[in-house]
Design a protein around this nucleic acid. Structure first.
Lengths: 106, 106
DNA sequence: TCAAACAACTTTGCGGCGCAAACTTGTTTG
DNA sequence: CAAACAAGTTTGCGCCGCAAAGTTGTTTGA
């Protein structure tokens, strides 16, 4: 009945990633190191989480070059924003207890 | 800096358990089967999650007898309520992005 | 009266997840 | 040219969550 929380988003780390990215104006991107610092995550950790979000189509990970140094940048996709909104709605619903439980007895 | 989400609470299943129990008046208890039905969980699943919450001191699991049938009842502890509130606060904080990121460059 | 079905849990087994250490590739500095 | 550094990625391992199977005790029905 009640929608499940998207497991791709429901995890401390990825939830923070999504929150951070979704707060930016559409189209804006963050560099990998910047995001890493913001979240205070290890690179390895961030890398694997980003991969998962990417596999789900929630973020776009692009390898570009800043000067001659290869730099990875990240942004939310439309689908990502949508999934995040859905997640928030589901969370809201979950945190609202079933309003004085229906009258089905034991 | 930002407080972490209590991992004991941050999980679809246990979050729902805590939400349900915390919505009840202090001292009220739910039977195991009732809770199981409310959450639409398997007994095994519910059992292990309750154990974890119990180990953390967040719920009180009592084995009593209804008539002559042994019945397990559950309720939140004071510590549980407190932990749940803390969790909600931490979640709120997490979902509020770092308000236009501090001016530490690159 | 005794066995078969049922109720209420608990334990087990296993696949998947998240983490940091270790590795890779490329760049700058002494 | 080597040593240190930066930016990621891959690997290995321990923990987690799930449902199937098991346990204990009770009710039903032949």
């Amino acid at each position: 009945m009640s929608a499940d929380l998207d497991p791709v988003i429901h995890s401390q780390a990825r939830l923070r990633i999504m929150t951070t990215l979704a707060a930016m104006p559409e189209g804006d991107r963050l560099t990998f190191p910047r995001l890493q610092k913001l979240l205070d995550a290890t690179a390895g950790n961030l890398s694997t989480h980003l991969r998962k979000l990417e596999d789900a189509g929630y973020v776009d990970v692009a390898k570009g070059h800043a000067g001659r140094v290869p730099t990875t940048t990240v942004s939310v996709t439309r689908a990502g924003r949508r999934a995040f909104e859905d997640y928030l709605a589901a969370l809201q619903a979950l945190l609202t207890p079933p309003t004085t439980v229906s009258e089905e007895e034991r």
